[in-house]
C-alpha cells in the first residue's frame, strides 16, 4: 500500500534519512522504531510531503506521490498525528473534526456544501468519532483547554475524520500513563478492524511489540532491520543500536 523506494533526505551534510526502502501492506499495523535522531520523524514528514525529498520515491497504492502537495495527499487517503500535538486550539472539539472532514462527498457536491455546512452524513460521522474517542461530552470546549490525554485522542479523531485508508501515528504514546496506553492499543486495534492501515512510529517498545505485525528499525537514517516483532527482538544489531540507545537515555534521565 505504501512503498518507500530508496528514500533519502539530507539536511546539509546530515543524512537524516539514507536510502530507506520499505513496504507496508494493506491492513497491516507497521511499526517504525529506532533511537532518538534515527530519522523516524523525518521519514513520516517525507511521507506527508512536509518537505521535499532529496532522492528516492514515495509510492501510495502504486502511484508515485513524491511530488504531490501535502493537502492533496489527504484526498488520497493519508492522514497523520503529530508527536507534539498540533490541534486548532482556538476551535472547539467539534469544529476541529468538522474542518478536518473535508470529505470526498463534499467535494463532489460543490462549493457550498464543502465550504458552508458540510453534509448531514458527515455530521453523523462526527458524532460517531466523538463516541469512539470518548469526547462526546467535550464537544463545545476549545481544543486548547482539553487535558493532555484528551488532546491526543482528539488529534487521532481529527486524523480519522477524513476517513483515511492510511494512518501515520507519530509517537502517540508519548507521555501516556499505563492505563492510557492500554486504551490506546485497543483503539489502534479497533482502527485496523475498521479497515485502516497504520504506520506506527513509537518509542514505547511494549506497545510496538504488542500490536504491530511487522517492524522496521532505523538507526542513523538507515534501515538496519525489518521483520516480525519476534525477529526484531531476537536481532543482535537492533539490540545493540536500540537497546544501547535506550540504556544511554535511561542514564541521561537518571543523571
Amino acid at each position: 500500500m505504501l512503498q518507500l523506494d530508496r528514500l533519502s533526505k539530507h539536511f546539509g551534510g546530515v543524512r537524516a534519512v539514507d536510502e530507506v526502502s520499505l513496504t507496508v501492506e494493506r491492513g497491516q499495523i507497521f511499526g517504525l522504531i529506532g533511537p532518538n535522531g534515527s530519522g523516524k520523524s523525518t521519514t513520516v514528514n517525507l511521507v506527508c510531503g512536509l518537505f521535499p525529498v532529496t532522492s528516492g520515491r514515495v509510492l501510495f497504492d502504486g502511484e508515485d506521490i513524491t511530488e504531490l502537495p501535502t493537502h492533496r495527499r489527504l484526498a488520497g487517503g493519508i492522514a497523520r498525528t503529530f508527536q507534539n500535538i498540533r490541534l486548532f486550539e482556538n476551535l472547539t472539539v467539534w469544529q476541529n473534526l468538522w474542518v478536518a472532514q473535508n470529505g470526498a462527498e463534499d467535494r463532489q457536491q460543490g462549493f457550498l456544501k464543502r465550504w458552508y455546512s458540510g453534509n448531514r452524513q458527515g455530521r453523523a460521522e462526527i458524532e460517531e468519532l466523538l463516541e469512539f474517542s470518548r469526547l462526546h461530552d467535550k464537544r463545545d470546549l476549545l481544543a486548547g483547554n482539553l487535558a493532555f490525554g484528551e488532546q491526543r485522542r482528539l488529534e487521532m479523531a481529527r486524523a480519522l475524520a477524513a476517513k483515511p485508508s492510511f494512518l501515520l501515528l507519530d509517537e502517540p504514546a508519548a507521555g501516556m500513563s499505563q492505563e492510557e496506553l492500554k486504551q490506546l492499543s485497543e483503539r489502534i486495534r479497533a482502527l485496523r478492524e475498521r479497515g485502516a492501515t497504520v504506520l506506527l512510529v513509537e518509542h514505547v517498545m511494549d506497545l510496538v511489540m504488542d500490536i504491530t505485525d511487522r517492524i522496521a528499525v532505523l538507526n542513523f537514517g538507515r534501515k538496519i532491520a525489518e521483520g516480525t516483532p519476534e525477529e526484531i527482538q531476537a536481532n543482535e544489531d537492533v539490540r545493540k543500536a536500540y537497546l544501547g540507545g535506550a540504556a544511554e537515555q535511561e542514564e541521561a534521565a537518571s543523571a
Binding site: H71, E89, A162
Partner: peptide, 11 residues
Amino acid sequence: QEATAARLCGI
C-alpha cells in the same frame, strides 16, 4: 492557528 496541520487536513 496551525498551517501545517491544516494542510494535513486537506485544506
